[in-house]
Write a protein that binds this DNA or RNA. Structure first.
Lengths: 187, 187
DNA sequence: ACCCCATCTTGTCAATGGAAAGATAGGGTG
DNA sequence: CACCCTATCTTTCCATTGACAAGATGGGGT
């Protein structure tokens, strides 16, 4: 499929994949549409047709990310701790998607596509968070759920930022399970 | 001091302040050195003298951020919950600093200045986290401290990303205290 | 009075994002 | 089977940007 024809075949998908790789490598700041086009073997204006502009490309990436996160949370089953670990695993495995998703300034957050995907992910997340935690003071269910989300999100963000790499060394997923267990499983 | 002399007087500070404002407004992506220079009333090459390049400017901003965070944590006193709230307050009040600090890809993380400032902030943070929490299963002190940090960091990140704005409305600090209390104060 | 050096300016270049207008081809319709 | 139609991609062009080089300015110390 590395044909040199006029039509690429699946430029949209190729660009999304290349974008994720580039962002995971150099960060969103160094992203260059022209460089993506070069690597895909198309002209520098080809991406514009599929995504409009740079923000449009990142919008599509964010939408894809929300869809994948929704799937990952659904697949995690009903256990809250497993869902939290799945959240962290998603952030690490799909670092570029995760980082873009939570920087709405990078894309068009009101785009219908990304909004729909986000709502689906929110529902999956809400379902996971609704599973009764051990037995904390759940007189404040909203705060409990926000805390669980914040804990998983914060661990993922700190890990991705490299802030934890000084002390920790091993498997992030095992560490995540230990850390999330501090809140998710009360004795 | 709005003199029109050859020398600005305090270009470095003016640029840092303008940078923080610009990032808080439009995000790091839309940051333009030439625009900053225009607003400061200097030539487009003036910033280069003080910061080298764009990454250098953000390095200085990150260093300033770490210094301010260290001060904020120190000023919070010995209470863990208060420290957590101070962490969140810092993130919200100095959004641009916070966002840059935890995106090492934006600056020169190995710069001596920022490294020193980060170490000082790490010490302040470590001190705050060392205060015994209520009475959780602290057989795993490392996990407990990481959980506390992750919780505060995650709440701040989610708030800044706008992910919480759909459900919540009121004062972020009060909400933060409620959420952080889920882990920090065990009954 | 003089020089030194931090600070700032002017001029230049390659790269980028984006817009406009045209080329190409593959598929459906008559 | 010829034709058109539309999605896809290219070419051309422009303003903006980051970075660099070389020069101008002037304050402070000797």
């Amino acid at each position: 499929m590395t044909e040199r024809s006029y039509h690429h075949g699946d430029l949209r998908r190729a660009l999304l994949t290349a974008t994720a790789a580039a962002i995971a490598d150099k960060g969103p700041m160094a992203l260059s549409l022209r460089d993506l086009a070069r690597r895909a073997g198309v002209s520098h204006a080809a991406p514009a047709h599929h995504f409009g502009d740079k923000a449009g490309l990142l919008t599509a990436l964010a939408a894809e990310g929300y869809a994948m996160l929704a799937d990952a949370l659904s697949a995690a089953g009903g256990d809250l701790l497993d869902s939290g670990v799945a959240y962290v695993r998603f952030a690490i495995e799909h670092r570029a998607h995760f980082e873009v998703m939570f920087q709405p300034g990078l894309y068009h957050p009101d785009d219908p596509g990304v909004a729909a995907a986000r709502e689906r992910a929110d529902r999956s997340l809400s379902t996971a968070l609704s599973t009764r935690p051990g037995h904390p003071r759940d007189e404040d269910a909203e705060a409990t759920q926000l805390a669980a989300w914040s804990l998983a999100h914060g661990f993922a963000a700190l890990w991705l930022s490299g802030a934890l790499s000084t002390t920790t060394e091993g498997d992030p997923e095992a560490l995540a399970r230990r850390v999330l267990g501090q809140l998710f499983q009360q004795p």
